[in-house]
């Protein structure tokens, strides 16, 4: 390989990825705290009260970003799973493993805040609506991944087996995303779209986007912190781990 091209595989080994992840974690955690704080401030104090839904709509600032993240993290997991299958890199499987609990958490958060929103607006905590049901299935997919991964002792084999499961489950993502357009059910249609722009006040949109970025930074920080533990756990018998300063201490 010529010296000018960047070697993408440099960080595909746990030995090099572990310190990199350690360096990135504080940056992303700080970013996450700042962004989430700003978004909450705009959401609670700056954004106008909705003329139809009153103050209760403010849960949107958590609900929408959490739902986006729940789907997006699954796609990221699928991306790492594909990389792991193609290049047989070890860090890929570890990243998938590190992302799964965060994804499950956001899915649960989306369902939970949705229930809080549904009670005052629809008069019920839960309806068997297409989008709610498919989001629930996404939650089951996360749980299924975690269960399958933890029941296979050989972690390399677990990575490969769960990669198949994740790729099968990816079918669900477009179903969730388009469910409000395909089926005319209780959950309202998307207020924000790439094509026609947003149908809400711009301060609300800004707050949602900042919150999304904040959740994004949070997910990266948590996933990187968790992947470090995963690396230590799986590589505990190797020489380089025993040489680490924090292990020697």
């Amino acid at each position: 390989m010529s010296p000018r091209t960047f070697n993408w595989f440099k960080y595909s080994s746990p030995t090099t990825f572990y310190p990199l992840a350690g360096k990135l974690v504080p940056w992303f955690s700080t970013l996450a705290v700042i962004l989430i704080f700003i978004a909450l401030y705009i959401g609670f104090y700056v954004a106008p009260t909705d003329y139809k839904q009153g103050e209760g709509y403010r849960i949107i600032f958590v609900h929408v970003p959490a739902s986006w993240m729940s789907m997006f993290i699954y796609l990221v997991m699928a991306f790492w799973a594909i990389l792991g299958v193609i290049f047989n890199t070890r860090v890929s499987g570890m990243m998938v493993q590190a992302l799964a609990p965060t994804g499950a958490m956001f899915t649960f958060l989306a369902l939970w805040t949705g229930a809080f929103w549904g009670k005052p607006m629809w008069g019920t905590w839960w309806v068997w609506d297409a989008r709610l049901t498919s989001e629930l299935i996404l939650f089951f997919l996360y749980i299924g991944y975690i269960a399958l991964h933890s029941s296979i002792d050989d972690k390399r084999r677990a990575d490969r087996a769960t990669a198949i499961l994740i790729l099968v489950g990816v079918v669900n993502i477009p179903i969730i995303y388009y469910s409000v357009e395909w089926w005319n059910t209780l959950h309202q249609g998307a207020s924000i779209s790439v094509k026609s722009g947003s149908s809400m006040a711009s301060t609300m949109l800004i707050a949602i986007l900042i919150m999304t970025l904040g959740f994004w930074a949070y997910s990266i920080a948590v996933a990187l912190a968790r992947v470090r533990s995963v690396i230590l756990e799986r590589e505990r018998d190797t020489h380089w781990v025993s040489e680490l300063a924090e292990i020697k201490r």
């Binding site: 089951f140 749980i143 299924g144 269960a147 399958l148 029941s151 499961l165 489950g169 669900n172």
Partner: peptide, 9 residues
């Protein structure tokens, strides 16, 4: 485990 993996699908 099978039920957990397969039933959602």
């Amino acid at each position: 485990l099978v039920s957990l993996l397969v039933l959602p699908l």
